Computed example of a mutant assay.
Amino acid sequence: MFLPRGVLSAFGLAILLHAQVFADTTATVGVYYETLCPVCRGFFINQLLPAYRQAPDRITVRLVPFGKTVINSTNPYIFTCEHGETECEGLKIHSCAVSLIHDQTTLLNLTECTIRNQTDPETILTECATNLGIELKPIADCAKSTNGSQLLKLNGDKTKELNPGVKDLPTITLNGSQNDESQLRTNLWNEICKVLQPKPSTCP
């Protein structure tokens, strides 16, 4: 039996809409942080990476390295970072990595590795990039150039858009919301599970 073309089109549209309604939902996690903040370091190691690895195909992470940095001048760029000049260097390295590394898993592995030890950001970048097989030179060159400063300034603009603004670090958003932020810092995977449908089997 043949159906009229209009009926077939309507049937196809219904199937498409059904698929869209029941498609797997995703979670977007925004992380506003500093590289020498101990709590930020702990969040990367104990919350962000473990949660991401539970469902990497359904979690998008937006890293915004800036925190409570102050921009004193834009010509040239001069920053005052909460934990000193070493942190400014680390923030530029992270800003450049975010801009240059397009594979999310690779980026998160590098930022988690480097944030573990920020006493010498350039040295730890070299070690981590080498161990992870990431091309070092573009990131290092960017961080030392005006481009690194421009990227850090742009992260400052993104940080200022938060409402409410930064109070405690890291500041975490889930699908744009800062609700239950204390839970996002300490039980990120549980909070992500609340917005994923269907829930992954590893959800509590």
Rank of each mutant, 00 (worst) to 15 (best):
L16D: 00
L16S: 11
L17I: 15
L17R: 06
L17N: 02
H18G: 11
H18V: 06
H18D: 03
H18Q: 09
A19K: 09
Q20Y: 13
V21G: 09
V21M: 14
A23F: 00
A23H: 08
D24V: 12
D24N: 11
T25I: 02
T25N: 02
T26H: 10
T26M: 09
A27D: 08
A27S: 13
T28C: 04
V29G: 11
V29K: 07
V29N: 10
V29I: 15
G30V: 06
G30K: 03
G30I: 09
V31Y: 08
Y32A: 09
Y32P: 15
Y32R: 07
Y32I: 13
Y32E: 07
E34P: 15
E34N: 09
L36D: 06
C37N: 10
C37T: 05
C37A: 08
P38F: 13
V39W: 14
V39C: 12
V39F: 15
R41Y: 02
R41D: 03
R41V: 13
G42F: 13
F43L: 07
F43N: 01
F43E: 05
F44D: 00
I45P: 01
I45H: 11
I45N: 07
N46T: 14
N46G: 12
Q47L: 02
Q47V: 06
Q47I: 05
L48G: 12
L48I: 12
L49E: 07
L49C: 04
L49F: 07
P50K: 02
P50G: 08
A51N: 00
A51D: 00
Y52T: 01
Y52P: 10
Y52G: 07
R53W: 00
R53C: 01
Q54R: 14
A55L: 12
P56T: 10
P56R: 12
P56Q: 14
D57T: 10
R58T: 03
R58I: 03
R58N: 12
R58P: 01
I59Y: 03
I59C: 08
I59H: 03
I59P: 06
I59L: 14
T60P: 00
V61Y: 02
V61W: 01
R62K: 11
R62E: 15
R62W: 04
R62S: 13
L63E: 14
V64L: 04
V64Y: 08
V64P: 03
P65T: 07
P65I: 07
P65C: 03
F66L: 05
F66A: 05
F66H: 06
K68G: 11
K68E: 10
K68L: 15
T69E: 08
T69H: 07
T69D: 10
V70H: 08
V70S: 07
I71C: 08
I71S: 08
S73N: 15
S73P: 05
T74L: 08
T74I: 14
T74F: 00
N75K: 11
N75H: 12
N75R: 09
